[in-house]
Amino acid sequence: MKRLIKCLVWDLYNTIWEGVILEEEVTIREGLPEVITELDRRGIIQSVASRGDEAVASANLSRHGLAEYFIAPQINWLPKFRSIRSICSELNFSPDATAFIDDDPFEREQIRFTIPDVRVYDAADALSLPDLPEFTPETITRESSMRRQLYAAELQRHKAESEYGSRLEFLTSCGMKLSVRPAVHADLPRVAELMSRTHQLNTTGLMIDREKLEEYLTEPGRCVMVAELNDRFGEYGIMAAAISETSGDTWKLGYLAVSCRVMGRGIEKAVLAKLLNNAVRSGYRAIQADLKETGQNRMMKALYQMTGFRNTGRKDEEGRLLYQFYGSHPVTMPEWVEVL
């Protein structure tokens, strides 16, 4: 299966609209606004990499009611691979989750050549994008449709950060509130979505289908949990999911996936600390965790080991390494996170 596209970068001239660079009046291509709003509803983030004058182009986007759909647009005279790289780094998308659409074969070829992982589309095919599997997430959740606002809020956070003297002051000023609770039936589409979309902050990379998750909800000794986060810039919705299993006095964290949207603020540590502290408080004596190396999740290995887990060297038939917790508890919660 082709990896889903999380971010689509549009060219403007002769892709979104007909018209010449620097011309004030442009005509939006027929059917295009419907494509843009549909991809937005599916939670695909859209941006712009186009040559031209930013003021003129932005005014045209606003006039046609499209400006709000594009996050971190790059309208300038730089080569487009530079613009696409800025978008990826500003919004934290890897190139292989990013796509670019342009009418100009030169521009498309240049992107293929400079950032080969970015998938490239001809503007002539714009109207059929929503039919392609890579633009069709299996489920559309409340978080999908909110995704654009979440990214816009994230950019606000970045701007705000430079106003503070220390990282700690800034993080504290955000007023992050975390809650962790057992999942209910209605959360499962989002849990499945997190498992399939999350690669770096994912401890096993294994896909657990909806039926299995459904069984887990009622299986004795098994617990599916979700974490929600909000701060003064807005809410993130459910941004982490975990599955634990218990037997006797052993509690094992079998799965932990944290959305990459909350990277960079220690939230994965906060979620882990909360889960571990709850387990210890419930009387479990042995705390364990599974970790399967996927080639992309070294961060989770670092998180476990920096938090007090050690690799026992034991591996199960699915390739999951067993980690044992030797750290002291309660595990310290990042001081800028308030747990509700």
Binding site: F170, L171, L201, G264, G266, E268, K269, M299, A302, M306
Partner: peptide
Amino acid sequence: LFDSGIVDSAGLISFI
């Protein structure tokens, strides 16, 4: 570096 919020798991991997 961690308690001060300067580095988290992602930051550590880039640093490494």
